[in-house]
Design a protein around this nucleic acid. Structure first.
Lengths: 249, 249
DNA sequence: CGCGACTTTGAAGGCACTCAAACACTGTGG
DNA sequence: CCACAGTGTTTGAGTGCCTTCAAAGTCGCG
């Protein structure tokens, strides 16, 4: 526990997430300036909200540890899950335009965040071109993430959706330097189902099949990928297709 | 024809789309500076690409007249339609991070755009805070648009999707000052189907039903909404639900 | 231990897809 | 001006995937 506690208070320059988060490409003294405006609060407990829809927009949040679910509701009261945010990811982009949060952000596990008061951060981006560029990258990532989500929901069957979700999580852990074929995932199957536009029952059946087929196992928050090729195949992702996105007509 | 031609060369300060596009909130002299960097090209003919996936990112594009479809392909060669862009909308956000376009943008009709060379534009945003803010709004809109698209694809049946699409288009025309219950829509049913994650056959059947039920008619690029309440009802949109997005658990 | 929340498993049904064929519209060339 | 090809739309019949509903099973925590 003390080990975890200490991890909560690391400064940007000593943070292992530099490559993912805002400091990317910044000089040492620039990181220091960023560091100075970062507000490190006490970690959120599981079930606590980082912000809620309609809250005033005060800050961007960089996740240091844990998982956050971004969600809202339809007019009929059904939950919509927009995404899951891992260490190094940035939350709050949804409020940039209106200065009010559009969605709810809830911790799915004990979660620690770095808060970046937007006024100060905005002033800093004016002075540091590299930080401004990185801000663009972060926003751009948010846009592409949304598109990827849509892509997942269009004309992909349930098997492909679940397989792609597992693969995507694996990739995100890999890019952060963690094991990619075996990792802990504090996300309920129920939440994944909603995210993928499926029912919990369907997800359960598919995970059972994946387990039986030796593709991957997801039990009790522990994910193990047994056969990456099979997983990619099930997801409908061929690795050798460079010109797929090229316009043809 | 000469009437159309002249519309292609209007400067920002005389453009009817100020409220939608970048000039929002800018002072007269600021609009002039923006005007100076705008590159107004010859209109695109139907079927011409504004840019294609993997193209270098040179400029943002503001649509002055016409319609543009943003699309790509899955690894299996199926088309994915990300959205349709109307006059006043801004295209090219997808390339902000990587400096390469991620998707293809094709004109669905004769289309005129204002090109904003990104280097110059970027320098200008550094000098004009209001423009920078408006840039944030534009990007933010792109993010929310993506989320709305995902929302449409999750747990909404075919009827609701089509109804919501028609309503959405109607709203977009209304916000631009055009008639909202009767408008021209140069989008193929086929493209709408792909955008909504449906087949053309399904869309056709639903439009036939909407016509029979006196909800709306869409024939030969002409959309007429007969009963807005019925349409909203079919789309599953109740207008009186302020607290729907509020977190409850 | 016992409760609540989540997950698993089974059976039945419906919505949207697939396949197929006819129909309508558009532009082109004879 | 008409014939005709190409593309998009409509309509019908049959099927399959995923949902829905229901109930039992498991996990986590006070």
């Amino acid at each position: 526990m003390s080990e975890v506690r200490s991890a909560f208070n690391v400064s940007c320059k000593n943070c292992g997430l530099q490559k993912i988060c805002f400091p990317t490409g910044l000089q040492k003294d620039e990181i220091e300036r960023l560091d100075n405006i970062v507000d490190r609060r006490a970690p959120l407990k599981k079930g606590q909200h980082l912000f809620e829809a309609n809250d005033n927009f005060n800050a961007l949040y960089a996740i240091r540890a844990g998982v956050v679910k971004l969600y809202s509701f339809t007019n009929t009261g059904e939950e919509i899950v927009h995404g899951f945010y891992l260490p190094g990811d940035v939350l709050g982009i949804d409020a940039l335009g209106s200065r009010r949060h559009q969605y709810n952000a809830i911790a799915l596990d004990t979660t620690s965040v770095c808060s970046l008061p937007f006024e100060k951060f905005s002033n800093l981006t004016d002075e540091l071109p590299q930080l401004n560029k990185q801000m663009m990258n972060v926003i751009s990532k948010e846009v592409l993430d949304g598109r990827m989500h849509s892509e997942l929901l269009v004309r992909r069957n349930a098997d492909q959706r679940v397989a792609q979700f597992i693969w995507n999580m694996s990739e995100r852990y890999r890019s952060r330097g963690y094991a990619s074929s075996e990792f802990r995932l504090s996300i309920l199957h129920r939440d994944v189902a909603v995210y993928l536009g499926l029912t919990p029952e369907t997800v359960s059946r598919i995970l059972a099949k994946f387990h039986a087929d030796g593709v991957a196992t997801w039990k009790k928050k522990e994910v193990v990928i047994h056969d990456m090729d099979k997983l990619l195949n099930t997801a409908g992702i061929q690795t050798s297709c460079d010109s797929c996105n090229k316009a043809t007509a």
